[in-house]
Design a protein around this nucleic acid. Sequence first.
DNA 1: GTCTATAGTCGGATAGAC
DNA 2: GTCTATCCGACTATAGAC
Lengths: 220, 220
Amino acid sequence: MGAEGKKSKDNARERLLEAGLDVFGRFGYEQATTRRITRQAGVNIAAIPYYFGGKQGLYGEVVSYVIGAIVSHLESTIQEIDLQKAAGPPNASQALALLLNLLAVIIEFMIGSPQAQRFARIILREQLDPSDAYDIIFKRLMSPVLDTLAGLIAAATQTPLSDASKLRALALMGQIMAFRFARETVVRALHAEGYSAKETETIRQIILEQTEAAILGIKK
Amino acid sequence: MGAEGKKSKDNARERLLEAGLDVFGRFGYEQATTRRITRQAGVNIAAIPYYFGGKQGLYGEVVSYVIGAIVSHLESTIQEIDLQKAAGPPNASQALALLLNLLAVIIEFMIGSPQAQRFARIILREQLDPSDAYDIIFKRLMSPVLDTLAGLIAAATQTPLSDASKLRALALMGQIMAFRFARETVVRALHAEGYSAKETETIRQIILEQTEAAILGIKK
DNA sequence: GTCTATAGTCGGATAGAC
DNA sequence: GTCTATCCGACTATAGAC
């Protein structure tokens, strides 16, 4: 049976959020049944309507939590970049260094962290089937990150900031996202089991190397 | 190939395949109800069990069709590359040209073709929730394309073919996939409606330019 | 081959006891 | 706050008429 060995120290609301993060991430909104979430959380099924107004409400809270966790993880790096910009426009090599550093932080979190897969799956599913929650994702995460990257790319390539800078930013992000989204393909192609620390390091090196070469090549 | 070229007959089976491609792509397996598929196809709901043994059977046929269409579209380009390789290992600049050409063909199809979104969504959903059908996708599409790209990357950078070549190939593919997967983000960030011919061309230029610079920078 | 009618299952939400 | 019992809708698949 669903032998629930968890301590009941946390209240039902918190346990539902934790279980929701896992189950929504693994199965997606539709296949994540309230029965499964409540069983995993060790609470009664009626607790979801009681605490969150319904399944939709719980899902919204889970998305907000995920975005908050990612944003707070990238926040200090982005603030540092804004600070440097405010102190005076960075030259090309400074901008490149900042760009590579930001990408490294994103890679560390997206590929290296154990939570990343659950987080990424929820975001990816919102890309496929945007719900009301996508607004939060775009405004708090995607838009600021893309804008910061685009600004650094423009400075590093000594070209004016434009829509093309944003498209370049997205293409660079795609290099990272590929390893998150196509995980199943990577695992099969390399006969691996998942992303070990060693593999994360290899991926990090490859992406940073290719990005640096791309930016320098464009600038020239 | 199958019935390609035939006029759309009043054949219920063909109409179900066509509607299934659309509805599975738009809504995913779970949310694609047999009611909706049959309504869109203009056939009775009982026709799915009758012709395909059930919803699963229809889905399997749709995936096979999608993979077949993509593979046959890339087939001639890949065969050309194999032919050149057989005639003697290409030098670095030849390999780079072949690599850029293959990527251009993939971009043209993945971003430019109107069918691409439906195709891509079905494949992406299989990445998230691999079913039995994922085997077909990996063996007939992912593995050959990644191998071809990895071979060209190794030749173009004058490095030995290794797992790192495959990872590089995936990162380059990620640049393309980003525009397919994060379409919602692109649309909002650029205040666009979708990918027009003009935007496809811009994306093509950016990806090819960045890829060329990346490969040349690594080689050097 | 195509239809109607319906069986059988499972989903989220609610009412009301405790 | 938490529980049991239940409702009601939606789903896939099947049986059998035509």
